[in-house]
Design a protein around this nucleic acid. Structure first.
Length: 467
DNA sequence: ATGTGC
């Protein structure tokens, strides 16, 4: 046996030496050249069968590794040009967000996408980005705050039934804000999501359970809020008569638990695609049907349910303190991936800061700490992959807001609208956001407005610089 | 967004 014959069979690099070593052993065992070449061909055809042991085990391992690498390279090949996608409210969207969406649309797994009118630059996929992929899920297509969501409770009370001071007292007593913040042990509440079997099905989830149990019912930081306000229904809907109601609106996510799931699986995804072009590196994906892909899918959905449970506990505490049961509730996740029919295909639709808006589906689109939010009903527009904006969207980054906006102007803005703010930072100033009326006007073919929520007493985390 | 590390 010689190297030439082995190379001719198609072995490369380290596999040549390993094939020769194995062939030498077989010659010593008395096999002829043709028999050995046939054995080598068999290893080539199905290296997996030779992995468990024997003369060809090392060769089989090397071939398997070489093929995995080649697959990763092939899978990482980007399209020469982005797939086409529709943009809503192009005049409201900075070029950087378009560029990020263009990168998403050259991924080999991408099939369709859309950009919502509140879009702005994010990490990986832009905020306001919707991306449909085939048989794969992108951790940063969902984002760090997996399951970030909205919830509205409409209470059987007139708006003036709750005074400002009492509203402040209730928010201070029953909500918790801040990075790393949990509920004190004696105030911790239980929720069925904490009893799911899922927590025991992955070491990562087992590890994160205690943190999740400690933080359930809390709100975190950044743009998260809990507020009392007035829900105005111009006509009967949501099973309610037209009129004004006291209501609770919250924006919250999956806290430290979801963040750690996101960070863990992003690292896994990037390790799976070592040759992915630098521009697309943050959009590294996990193939579904693999242990990693299914692991993320399971953890992501648990984080989604956990985030909704956070809202439920927040609303339950406040409604109990007021001694009422909500007349109705509306909620939706806006950072998550769903299995969804897109044309002829079953795809994975990522919404990173986008409201699901299937025909008839209710959703919540907040404005800002001092601007109205809206209950909307989806129109199921297929070009938007049945989505809408998740809010007004930033028109200014956090640093830019802190550098250019004056506290005094934010205070004036709040006073003019009769909004009382607890916490809140200059980086969350209403002026740092696009005008919600403009954003809604750009998506009339995505959602109908059902009702308006006007904030009155708002609690947020204390920002970099308080208002 | 998180709460600590390229």
């Amino acid at each position: 046996m010689n190297g030439k014959l082995v190379t001719k069979l198609g072995f490369e690099k380290k596999a040549v030496a390993l094939a020769l070593a194995a062939a030498t052993q077989r010659e010593r065992a008395g096999l002829g050249r043709e028999e050995i070449l046939n054995e080598l061909r068999a290893v080539q055809d199905n290296p997996g069968a030779f992995l468990p042991g024997g003369v060809y085990a090392d060769l089989a391992a090397e071939l398997t590794a070489q093929r995995a690498k080649a697959d990763a390279r092939r899978g990482a090949e980007l399209r020469p040009t982005p797939l086409p996608y529709r943009v809503w409210g192009e005049d409201l969207i900075e070029p950087g967000a378009r560029q990020q969406m263009d990168v998403a649309m050259v991924l080999p797994i991408s099939r369709a996408g859309a950009l919502m009118p509140d879009a702005h630059v994010g990490y990986g996929l832009p905020i306001g980005g919707v991306l449909a992929a085939e048989d794969a899920v992108i951790p940063y297509g969902v984002g760090v705050d997996i399951g970030c969501s909205m919830r509205l409770s409409v209470l059987p009370l007139k708006p003036d039934a709750l005074g400002t001071d009492e509203a402040r007292r209730l928010l201070l007593k029953h909500t918790r804000f801040g990075a790393g913040v949990g509920f004190e042990k004696r105030d911790r509440e239980d929720h069925e999501v904490l009893h799911e079997q899922t927590w025991r099905e992955q070491p990562l989830l087992r590890h994160l359970f205690d943190k999740a149990a400690e933080q359930i019912g809390t709100s975190g930081s950044g743009n998260h809020f809990v507020e009392f306000g007035t829900l105005t229904l111009a006509q009967p809907d949501l099973g309610l008569e037209a009129g004004e109601y006291l209501a609770i609106l919250s924006h919250s996510g999956s806290r430290g638990f979801g963040a750690q799931v996101a960070n863990h699986y992003t690292k896994v995804a990037q390790a799976l695609h070592p040759n992915l072009d630098a521009a697309a590196r943050k959009l590294a994906w996990l193939p579904l049907g693999t242990e990693d892909g299914e692991g993320y899918w399971q953890a992501m959905n648990l984080a989604g349910r956990y985030a909704l449970a956070n809202h439920e506990l927040i609303h339950r505490r406040l409604a109990r303190a007021l001694n009422v049961d909500p007349l109705t509730t509306v909620s939706n996740s806006h950072n998550l991936a769903w299995r969804q029919r897109v044309g002829e295909h079953d795809l994975i639709v990522h919404r990173k800061g986008a409201t699901p808006a299937e025909r008839g589906q209710l959703g919540l689109i907040p404005g800002s700490m001092a601007d109205p939010g809206f209950v909307v009903r989806g129109l199921g527009n297929p070009d938007a992959l049945a989505s809408a904006s998740h809010g007004a969207g930033r028109q200014m980054g956090r640093k830019a807001a802190a550098n250019t906006l004056a506290k005094k102007d934010v205070q004036t803005y709040l006073r003019e609208r009769g909004v009382t703010l607890i916490g809140g930072g200059i980086d969350e100033a209403p002026q740092a956001y696009k005008r919600i009326e403009h954003v809604l006007a750009r998506q009339r073919d995505l959602v109908d407005v059902v009702a308006q929520f006007t904030p009155r007493v708002v609690r947020m985390d204390t920002g970099s610089e308080d208002v």
